[in-house]
Simulated assay, not measured.
Amino acid sequence: MSIASLTVCLVTLSACGDAQSEQDDPVTAAPYVYVGDGRLGLARAAERTPLRRFVLAFLLSHQSRCEPVWNTGRPLADAHVLAEARALRATGAAVTVASGGASGTYLENTCATAGELADAYVRALDRTGADWLDVDIETGIPVQLVAEALREVQDRRGARISVTVEVLDERRGLPASATELLRALAWRNVDVVVNAMVMNFPPDNGWRVAMLRAAESVTDQIGQIWPSDGRDGAYRRLGLTYMAGRNDTGVVTTLADARALRDYAGEHDLAYLGFWSLARDNGRCPGERDAREDCSGLAQHTYDFARATAHVPEEGE
């Protein structure tokens, strides 16, 4: 799919069936899957949930070289990861690969030229059979180089592209570093989804209201960067990613909050709704006061957030 048309099938990858399955619902929903710990279970999750896309995260630099590896140093061609991706695609679901993230040495900061960075991105897309590239920027990067590389990836592969960026708070929306990158992409006519992380910022009042207000603030900023799109077009370029359960800062995203975000996404025809992460989508640590990578901290059934994000009833309802 693309922002302008939600019916694009990629001729370079075997993903036309996947794009068609996502076409049934204009809001693409997907969880992030942390590749580093090796506990993926992608095909099983696809079979037990209505989600038709999963985001493999994160690609980083191998020993500060322009060579993509998964976090914790797993090679890009790791047999287990590639087998998981193949099994997932065999279910009819699709794969996104994400670079960057909260820590580690970024490819974006080690590749010397836009062409080299684009080559690294394309290798990751080709290896995994992915049709979507997500660039999660949580540190300083060479903006023009990254924007030029993404333009090249889009030209070479037709892959959908999203840029995942932090939210300062519900009123200020994106930081200047994020809007600088978006302006560089807009200048190059890169068809990009702006994926705002509605997590880990201080709310003025209730957390659900804060996330929705943040979405509106980011939509305002998108409208300033792509003014010809109008308000509806700004919404269609917007993605939201929340943290399931207890966030790192102590706020808690409940299943009701996830459903409210999904309703908002459907009402405004957003491009994307995601959550961090598949490994946290279970109730193994109800009442936990600190955010953990392997559970949400809530009393829930496994994959309840996946079902809420995809807008279907949770288990037991």
Rank of each mutant, 00 (worst) to 15 (best):
L13G: 12
S14M: 08
S14Q: 10
C16G: 07
G17H: 08
G17N: 15
D18M: 10
D18K: 03
A19T: 14
Q20D: 15
Q20R: 11
S21N: 12
S21E: 13
S21M: 11
Q23N: 15
D25K: 05
V27S: 12
A30I: 14
A30Q: 11
Y32T: 14
Y34S: 13
Y34N: 05
Y34A: 12
V35Y: 03
G36K: 13
G36P: 13
G36T: 13
D37T: 14
R39G: 10
L40G: 08
G41R: 05
G41T: 08
G41A: 08
L42C: 09
L42H: 06
L42W: 08
A43G: 06
R44E: 15
R44A: 15
A45Q: 07
A46V: 14
A46N: 12
A46H: 10
A46Q: 11
R48V: 13
T49C: 04
P50L: 05
L51A: 13
R52P: 06
R52A: 14
R52N: 13
R53W: 10
A57D: 09
F58K: 00
L59M: 07
S61F: 08
S61C: 09
H62W: 10
Q63R: 00
Q63D: 13
S64H: 02
R65C: 02
R65H: 03
R65S: 10
R65Y: 00
C66M: 06
C66D: 08
E67H: 04
E67W: 06
V69D: 08
W70Q: 02
W70E: 06
W70C: 02
N71V: 15
R74Q: 12
P75V: 06
L76M: 01
L76Q: 03
L76R: 00
A77C: 03
A77T: 14
D78A: 11
D78L: 06
D78I: 10
A79H: 00
H80F: 09
V81L: 00
L82R: 02
E84F: 04
A85G: 01
A87T: 12
A87G: 11
A87R: 12
A90M: 04
A93E: 07
V97I: 06
V97F: 03
A98E: 06
A98P: 00
S99G: 13
S99P: 07
G100P: 01
G100E: 06
G100H: 04
G100F: 04
A102F: 04
S103K: 00
T105C: 07
Y106N: 02
Y106M: 06
L107A: 09
L107W: 03
L107V: 11
E108Q: 05
C111H: 07
A114G: 11
E116H: 01
E116F: 03
L117E: 05
L117C: 01
A118E: 07
